[in-house]
Design a protein around this nucleic acid. Structure first.
Lengths: 203, 203, 203, 203
DNA sequence: CATGAATGAGTCTTCATTCAT
DNA sequence: TATGAATGAAGACTCATTCAT
């Protein structure tokens, strides 16, 4: 009966407490950032004693790890757009979703980045997440290049990284943007950059 | 940004010590991030005693403030491109500079961002810096729109923010990129997005 | 020594759980020492849940108390040598047993001593145990002095304490000794010190 | 100007504070044992703030380390007896010194042993100290065997360990003994055990 | 009997900052 | 100006113990 560290809760009550702690942690991390959050803040927010946090999470870092994992998986799911429709539509939809989900998780993503600056593990998690996203975009661009719908003059990987960064960066640095308002322009930029906006290109 | 202590150093020796401390601070902040840097690390790196740092800087935050101020002003100067040449050339040149200077100050910029997450003052400094940059880009776009060289379908402010974010975001998330290698693709994307690449547009 | 909780276990199952806990405690105490042993370690080793330990033992200290009580009584029994035979033989046999039993319970005895350093109750238990042993030895010496087989120049109590300490101390500080190997020398020293080795003494 | 951890104090004031801390630590460790001593106890006893302790010692363990080192070196010096005089006199003198120094450092030695039970580093330090002592005694016995003044029937190493343990063990387990009172008996036992008491031996 | 969730007192340790010299 | 000794607030983490189920 060896106990794994922070083994999952067995009873329903335990499950709920753990859930409450994760939610509380997400909230408090968002409000104060990682460094300025005390474990007891999280406990208090969850309505439990501060020792209880350590029943479910090995350390502050581990707690953040679980919050981040949940967040990224949630975001990842939301971002996955079906293969249906023409490229422009798919891109448009993807951008809209990105802008929406980013607006929603604004603060928490900032916090993860903050931690990643000083912690290689989180830096890797974030880099991987981003890399997967970019890889999907690059794949799409390559397919369009095969079909001669996107110019081969563009490096698919760099373009994917750049266009993804454009949307992420816009979202990150424009606090309080309204996804539905900015989405048309961003998508238009994206499509025109790739030459997918119906214009006749010279190359 | 926090102000300097009472007055700058008067003697030459003092001036040099202060300079050494600023340089040491920049180095150590880059290596360990803000939070993980101890004032004594900075002192040690500068070859002075622990308490000496406080002779020149009121607090750790003030020290960072001065480092950042110097950094941003240096970057700002470097980024200012002349008004000469056609738009494409100017944009190309601006992007190249941005990619180069970002590569150079990679870490320190990350660190500032890290701090900005938890400190409104630095957040503002960074936001202002970015806003000035974006405003200049937006101004350029608007001028081109006036001249009918850029479609009015694009919102100038959003476009400026997005394209700036594209370059900055690419630089930020692509560790070890070579400015000269990625620059053509990024500039091409930018120009095509604005319709400045010589292609005949449909709108 | 702390007393047992309200009453011993009533069911057979309870008796077995209790036994398992005692054995687990002995093992874990030996492995990690008292302070570094967590109650949950004991529970885990015994294959029961965390809280179960408190069903049978009032506290960590009480648990140790029972382990020690069992240990000392077991050792005490083993050490009791019959009155038969000449003194030299009896002493030889006693030493052999001591060396053997000490080797066996090496760690646990160290642990008790460790605790005794900070806990007067255990210090007393240990002192009493030792005192009983020494008293028996002293009694033997006094008898031999009465019979003029041991010089009156030796203080019986001090000698008893010293010779007992010699064997115990040897055992304690010579990790991995082989009882059968060192026993002859130790016994010889003991006998000669008392003048029981057949040599003609001058006094 | 790389700072070694806990670099030695530079000023006289620092030297004195460090000294006071070491003395305070020795006292408090003796009074409460290692585990029950809080760093703030030491600080308080030394009349400084609790943070100051960490200016001079890296950790609680390191602090104990220094106390022990000082103690053992002090004891070691005191124990070294000159080569002058006949063996019996030298042994007598050595025992007297041992009993005296042990009585003096009673508690602290116990504490070290307590810690050694759970900490291999201290266990080693103690073992080494003891081994050096025993080695010196064994060397003496071997010399006497060469000169035919001690029987070859005795294993020199075992005898040395045993007789040393006899004195140490007596000292350890007889709280409040008076060195001058018990010394004659202990020395007599030692000498007779080795056959150095002027009696004619049979072997 | 057994479980495991919950508690909270207890401490070490860090480090920005102050200050006497 | 420079030093380095001293401070003390702050916070993560441990674990014996309790208790509702």
């Amino acid at each position: 009966m060896p106990e794994q560290p922070a083994a999952g809760p067995v009873t329903e009550r335990g499950r709920r407490t753990r859930e409450r702690l994760l939610e509380a942690a997400r909230e408090v991390f968002e409000e104060r950032g990682y460094n300025d959050t005390r474990m007891s803040d999280v406990a208090e927010r969850a309505g439990v004693s501060h020792g209880t946090v350590y029943v479910y999470f090995e350390s502050k870092q581990a707690l953040l790890g679980e919050v981040v994992q949940a967040l990224l998986s949630q975001i990842g799911d939301y971002l996955r757009v079906g293969e249906a429709g023409d490229p422009a539509t798919r891109i448009s939809e993807a951008n809209l979703r990105y802008l929406r989900v980013y607006a929603q998780h604004d603060r928490m993503l900032q916090v993860v980045e903050q931690v990643a600056t000083a912690d290689p593990v989180f830096a890797q998690v974030l880099a991987d997440f981003r890399a997967r996203h970019v890889a999907r975009v690059a794949e799409g661009i390559r397919r369009l290049q095969t079909e001669d719908r996107v110019s081969d003059a563009l490096d698919a990987d760099i373009s994917a990284a750049a266009l993804s960064a454009m949307v992420e960066g816009y979202a990150r640095h424009s606090p309080g943007y309204r996804a539905d308002d900015v989405h048309p322009t961003l998508t238009l930029l994206w499509l025109r950059a790739l030459g997918l906006d119906g214009r006749i290109t010279a190359d």
